[in-house]
Design a protein around this nucleic acid. Structure first.
Length: 457
RNA sequence: GCCUCCGUCGUCUAGUGGCCCAGGACGCCGCCCUCUCAAGGCGGUAGCGGCGGUUCGAAUCCGCUCGGAGGUACCA
């Protein structure tokens, strides 16, 4: 039973991979992987995607980034849905032959004129007229309710009286999305449909169609949507939702996956940081929350930081590579990288932390300069330059010497280091100073201190 | 309008009648450590939308109410 599971994942056809879609994909992936089932990717918008293959490419590459590999044995796809295939028309015809659907010639205005209510749906006027043309409508049950058994939401009952005879094919005969969607799911032997709960309201229609087509409906699981700080569903226009953007900013895929899985689900123990293998093993749709979750970048950053600190120095250095200027000396960077590892939340911040070591002149932050270069900065820098002129060039010694210099001015190291830091790195905050000086060398250090002295003069 | 879903610290959550005067994590605040900034350690802040029931006992069950979200096309 569980080995025959086939989950369907349908990213939205917008050419951009939404974080909500990513989470949904991950949930699907987890249950498919754990049960040894099949993950079916379907891009639902036929026309848009047929004309823009790069959109599909983008989605596949985003999926690959978070570990959903198109080469995996439990992956099947991509599959485009077309609602113009023969089997869709055949299904419409079958439904009509079975008396489950009928032609209707009413216009919207006619319906409103009859019901006197623009809020109500179709009134069933053509139900028994035996027409041969027009839109095809599905004959909805008059009484009772349609019960959707949902793994996440539980038992949800929709009164049939609130469901109009909805259209399944246009008057030109072309099948509509709802119908095609169900037909394809049946054909692909989908057993589990896991999607955002914005689809819950349309589920009874689909379920009716599954039944009418003589097939047992799949297991439904409607997961809560992800919302913004205003508690609205994440929108492409307002919110930053493209998974690709987070990759570009320097979030680690593992951290992203971990965070996304935590949105609406929590492992049994108190762990929040845990490997994918554990999550996939423990994940149950039944344990997914029912309420919407806010996408909190602050927490994402914190988790990303955890993952970055857990990296070995080599892994961290490698992870930084895409965010480094090509001209920077990688040997020098390798020395600096371990110092930077605990000091950033996302990889894209690496540049501003280490650029001083590669540029001819440090980028000087004026506010930092004004703050650090107060009396007796000039004299202190002169003394430091002297002390450093003949110092053995290692961090330990550089620290000791500056400490001594500071003492002469009645300053502790915390104060005394500030002018030197700004002179050599351009900023008041940054990597450990003396290790940094060791890396850039005596010549560069002295040159920068001298330059600062003359600027102060 | 009608239908459906949702409502525990600012945020993500644990919690399915007593173990909860509600636990963890992020954030925030403070202290320690410290060459700056981080990291790390320690401590703190803050919550069951409201009202009525049921019960010896309710975050947990029921009703109402308020608030939020989504759906409702000859769109996909």
């Amino acid at each position: 039973m569980s080995s025959s599971i086939r989950v369907r994942f349908a990213p939205s056809p917008t050419g951009m991979f939404h974080v909500g879609g990513a989470r949904s994909a991950l949930f699907n992936w987890a249950i498919a992987e754990r049960s040894g089932g099949t993950f079916v990717l379907r891009i639902e918008d036929t026309d848009a995607n047929r004309n823009r293959p790069e959109w599909t490419e983008g989605i596949i590459s985003a999926l690959a980034w978070i570990g959903i590999d198109t080469g995996s044995p439990v992956f099947e796809g991509p599959l485009y849905q077309s609602h113009q295939e023969p089997q869709h028309r055949a299904a419409v015809a079958r439904l009509q032959a079975d008396g489950r659907a009928y032609h209707c010639a009413c216009t919207r205005d006619e319906v409103i004129a009859r019901t006197g209510d623009s809020n109500r749906g179709y009134d069933g006027f053509c139900r028994d007229r035996g027409l041969a043309e027009g839109v095809v409508r599905f004959r909805t049950p008059d009484e009772g309710g349609t019960v959707v058994e949902d793994l996440v939401k539980g038992t949800v009952e929709f009164p049939n009286s609130a469901m109009e005879d909805f259209a399944i094919a246009r008057s030109d005969g072309s099948p509509l999305f709802v119908l095609a969607n169900v037909v394809d799911d049946i054909e692909m032997r989908i057993t589990h449909v896991v999607r955002g709960d914005e689809h819950l309201s349309n589920t009874p229609k689909q379920q009716l169609l599954w039944d009418a087509l003589g097939t047992t409906p799949p297991v439904w699981a409607h997961i809560p949507v992800i919302v913004n700080e205003k508690r609205q569903k994440l929108s492409k226009r307002r919110d930053k939702v493209a998974l690709e953007d987070y990759r570009a900013e320097g979030y680690l895929a593992d951290a992203m996956v971990n965070y996304l899985m935590l949105l609406g689900w929590a492992p049994a123990d108190d762990r929040e940081i845990l490997p994918w293998s554990d999550m996939a093993q423990e994940f149950r749709l039944e344990n997914v929350n029912t309420s919407p979750a806010f996408f909190d970048v602050k927490k994402l950053r914190a988790i990303n930081g955890e993952y970055m600190r857990a990296l070995s120095p080599e892994e961290f250095t490698a992870a930084c590579e895409p965010f480094l200027d090509p001209s920077w000396d990688r040997k020098v960077f390798a020395e600096l990288a371990p110092l930077a590892q605990t000091r950033l939340a996302v990889l894209s911040e690496i540049g501003e932390l280490v650029d001083f070591a590669f540029l001819a002149e440090p980028v000087t932050d004026e506010a930092a300069w004004n703050k650090a270069m107060k009396e007796p900065a000039a004299d202190l820098l002169k003394a430091a330059a002297e002390a450093y002129a003949d110092a053995p060039w290692n961090a330990e010694e550089l620290k000791t010497r500056l400490e001594e210099v500071g003492l002469r001015f009645g300053l502790k190291l915390g104060k005394a280091q500030a002018p030197v830091r700004v002179a050599t790195t351009g900023r008041t905050v940054g990597l450990p100073l003396f290790e940094s000086l060791e890396v850039i060398g005596r010549e560069v250090t002295l040159a920068r201190i001298t330059a600062a002295i003359s600027r102060l003069a």
